[in-house]
Design a protein around this nucleic acid. Structure first.
Lengths: 197, 197, 197, 197
DNA sequence: GATGAATGAGTTTTCATTCAT
DNA sequence: TATGAATGAAAACTCATTCAT
């Protein structure tokens, strides 16, 4: 049964790979189930064995993206003291985003999905809020955390999309610098990152 | 021929009114041309005499919304000195938004349109940038204005959508206060607004 | 506008004609909307301008069939006294059925529609019950009319389908005779019908 | 190998049980092989080891139903003299039907199967005809037995479905009484049945 | 300018059936 | 025997768009 399990998993991966490829080529708006299964060289019905609807496979891609970001930051920045930790986490976000530019545009840009954008912003805001409550972020401001989390989520996604759509007119370091200065009102720590994955 | 002109204008208004009503009922995703013309009690083909596609009529609604905001602020706040002017303009934004809660959700929420959301954010960012360049806004930060404008646009739209979707958990004044404090890092001016439109 | 009306009516007739033809060729079970519109040489979507679903067009054919039977009997048998009137009406039913043999099999036979069969039996039973209540039929039996009407409807449809499926092993006159004798327990009136439609 | 045999039989019974349950819940029209195997907690492919198609398992249920009716009547009514035997057999039919109301509706009602309905009517008519030829039924009418058998089959099924769909507005005894009076034109024998199985 | 009938491309979705394990 | 992943044919349905009146 293990062989069968692995086979099934393999099919799932093929589908996600195809969906990801197509996303870059035709954008979310142009994505279809037929397109995915054709690209994956699988039968049409096979899609429904693994996902219930189009958004489900796309959301799983977004989750993978989010996981990769979280893993890239949380793990490595465990012991870095605040606020340098914030700076580095943002830097990592933009570094990762630099590699996934086209995906970001495809998912959240003008040919993207309103539903998934909102969902991702909800998710992101929840993460921010959780971090703030746990004291991992500190704004030093006398403003409710839900407000701050929403604002940060909106600002961050917008910056990522704008930056990605315009083919990264600033470097990742510059983006992190500017964000740091805007949020913390002080010069960014002199730092060249934490080394890439 | 003036009679004909007025008639034409009247038809256009009927269509926009119907589109606006439907937007609140079925959301952008559920909007159809047939739905609009049925609601407006006009023939199907009539739509095409006034708009080329669905997004065009919706965008015209967004423009109206934007115009109403701009008119509400720019006109009345001409002579108010900075930074109190910023505070009041934001207050007005949230006051107007309070009246158009459902429209905001319908247009930019999860059942809204990715394309129009991006377009509106582009537009908003352009307005912000223009204001900053003209010195009407001043951040006091050593950060490029395009970055700041994008960030503000993303933050603002997200706050509006979140606030509208959650049925305005804070008052308009509270929202303006929090935004002011976050951006300017000082207590908001003690002010009860500029009177309603 | 009258021209357009007539044109629309014409399209509707084409669709019904095509549906009727196909019914004979492929049976109800093989009927599809695409099949109908192809046969009628009309666009696929045109179907939905005139009918909501497949069963609707088929039911309209059944209604036409029922109407033609009713017209064939009620009108011409107005003044014939009971029970000869019953005999003649049955005779007409079988005579009409002889002309529509294949339709009966297609609609109500083994490749037919359970839903429409039940619906037609309901309809037929209602007609019978109405006639009985109005004293137009009289069984002379001390049995509730709803029971009798249902029983007659079931018996009649089954006889028609069986007779049609087996390529009318008896003549229409024989069928009427047998039915008459079974129901009224007396020899059928000596009669050769009332002339064909 | 007897163990294997019993196991196989057990699986078959599970499938039939599941099919029967589902029939009552979703009707014939909603029946699917996946539904049956899911309900039976068996693998999809297992179905095909026992039946060739959907109708086959359903027909086996109908056969079981018919067998139970036949067993309930023929066996116990062997020595009852005509026409009281007819009366009792009908009574038993309605008594059994009272217990299987929902199955009758599911199989032969508006959400049932035209094919299986016709097939069951054919079967029933054949039984009737056989009985008539063997002199077990006697109509006293000078009408061919095939005609009578078809008519009776149609009437009987329709009465059963109508009665079951309308939640048995008359009692089983009343149904048998009415049927007896309609067919034999004399009061039903004073009898309260033959005791339940 | 206004109308609305006709079009048909494009997608989703369901399911019986096969087959390798 | 039993399993269930993979297949793909088959249909329904929606809707933007065109066009003759």
């Amino acid at each position: 049964m293990n062989r069968s399990e692995r086979r099934k998993q393999q099919t799932r991966v093929q589908l996600k790979q195809a969906a990801n490829d197509l996303l870059l080529e035709v954008g979310y708006a142009g994505l279809t189930i037929k397109g995915i299964t054709d690209r994956a060289d699988l039968g049409y019905g096979t899609f429904y064995l693994h996902f219930h609807e189009l958004d489900e496979i796309v959301w799983s891609l977004i989750q993978d993206f989010a996981d990769s970001q979280i893993m890239a930051t949380t793990d490595r920045l465990q012991d870095v003291p605040y606020p340098r930790r914030e700076y580095l986490s943002w830097l990592v976000v933009f570094e990762v985003a630099e590699q996934t530019r086209e995906s970001i545009v495809a998912l959240f840009g003008k040919r993207g999905s309103a539903r998934l954008l909102q969902r991702y912003q909800d998710y992101l805001a929840a993460v921010y809020e959780e971090n703030m409550r746990a004291g991992r972020y500190s704004s030093g401001l006398n403003v409710p955390v839900d407000f701050l989390a929403q604002m940060m989520a909106g600002a961050m996604i917008r910056l990522l999309v704008w930056w990605a759509e315009n083919e990264t007119p600033y470097s990742a370091v510059q983006m992190a610098d500017m964000l740091y200065e805007t949020v913390f009102r002080e010069p960014p720590p002199d730092d060249q990152g934490v080394g890439n994955p």
